[in-house]
Design a binder for these strands. Structure first.
Lengths: 209, 209
DNA sequence: AAAAATTAATTAAACGTTTGTTTAGTTTTA
DNA sequence: TAAAACTAAACAAACGTTTAATTAATTTTT
């Protein structure tokens, strides 16, 4: 779907306000004001608030799967090296799309079969299958140990990054980083998470012990 | 604060619906219906919807800190043993209070200085300080390695459990556990998370390598 | 190329619902 | 019989959406 400038502005505003206030907390008038357009334009372009949410989703849910497939094919990287790239990809994706991922987290908490819940499920399933292949490849070559629960592993990867983003203000305060500029702090988070997660997974995947 | 039966019913209903639908998504009429009381009783007992949320918080935010303090004083457990008990406490607390923790997660995403945001912050800060002492004790005795980032460690602990709870339906499906009864599944989650997290932390805290 | 006709974009206002809260009255409890 | 518990109804405000009218852009006709 091709979007006009105004439509992009609406999606951007919706993404921001849905992330901050939640779907019900953000009114269409809020969004219209943020996007600097008339309220009626939201219905005009997207049909409804619900459909606007779907448009936000469609626009932002880039597939990480392609990257994983490329990783699988890469023969210059070790098996652990591939996992490390995967970690960095996830960390980067979450940090650069914080707003969208807050929306995703919220949407997953809703106990309802929304169209978006289905989209998230399929996305996660496809990603997981690719990552499973990546791990199994390492196991076959003896680089990784047997009995790795990939779902649990991904739960820790995604959970750690999500939790960091959700509680970044707390993290800042606990580390006396409140003075730090936003961009600088994002770099800091990125680095810290990357090292932390790589250490965590290196030890729990490794066959040597 | 002592609550009557009806007040408890309202808090329970509010906890459930705030968790499922979010604060704005759950209407006072929804809550009144769920609690099987008249809408006006919410204002009558709690003053407002906002205050009801605070009451839910006050009623559910049991302090895990006391448990940690007892752990610190325990001399029958090894340092790693204490960390393992801590892990189990967190896993149990989250699984048995899933609804409340969903509310906490949602509340932390809101970029607003609500009274509850302050409560969460103080709670986390106090807990963190106790856990830091627990880790430092182990470091002093040479059981744990130096340079442990306790905030990051807790981010992984809380993040993993949160993510598991948020995406438990996905986890069920990926492991073909859809047939499993709710109580049985909770036991399963509890066990899996416990083992997974203990392994993860054992290796990243341990001084032996 | 100018004029006319058609379509698209945009607006302010109004729509009917739903929202959280209050009121005024009734029933129950102590 | 006074206080507390409870109710149905009403309240104004905010909600998502639609309408009707106007302006801007595009296409068709001359």
């Amino acid at each position: 779907m091709e979007y006009s400038e105004k439509q992009i502005a609406i999606i951007k505003a919706a993404e921001k306000l849905f992330a901050i206030k939640g779907f019900d907390g953000a009114s269409v008038r809020d969004i219209a004001h943020e996007a600097d357009i008339n309220v009626a334009m939201i219905s005009y372009y997207f049909g409804s608030k619900e459909k606007l949410m779907e448009a936000v989703f469609e626009a932002r849910s880039s597939n990480i799967r392609l990257k994983i497939e490329n990783l699988l094919a890469d023969d210059k990287l070790s098996h652990l090296g591939k996992v490390n790239v995967l970690i960095d990809d996830y960390v980067d994706k979450f940090i650069h799309q914080q707003e969208f991922h807050k929306i995703m987290m919220r949407e997953q908490m809703i106990e309802k079969d929304t169209p978006i819940a289905g989209l998230i499920h399929d996305l996660k399933k496809r990603n997981l299958e690719s990552i499973k292949r990546l791990i199994e490849e390492g196991q076959k070559k003896g680089a990784f140990k047997k009995n790795i629960d990939v779902v649990l592993m991904m739960t820790t990867l995604v959970g750690t990054v999500s939790q960091m983003i959700t509680s970044q203000y707390f993290y800042k305060k606990m580390n006396n980083l409140e003075h730090m500029e936003e961009v600088e702090f994002q770099k800091h988070m990125r680095k810290k998470l990357s090292i932390h997660l790589k250490n965590l997974f290196k030890q729990s995947l490794s066959n040597e012990q």
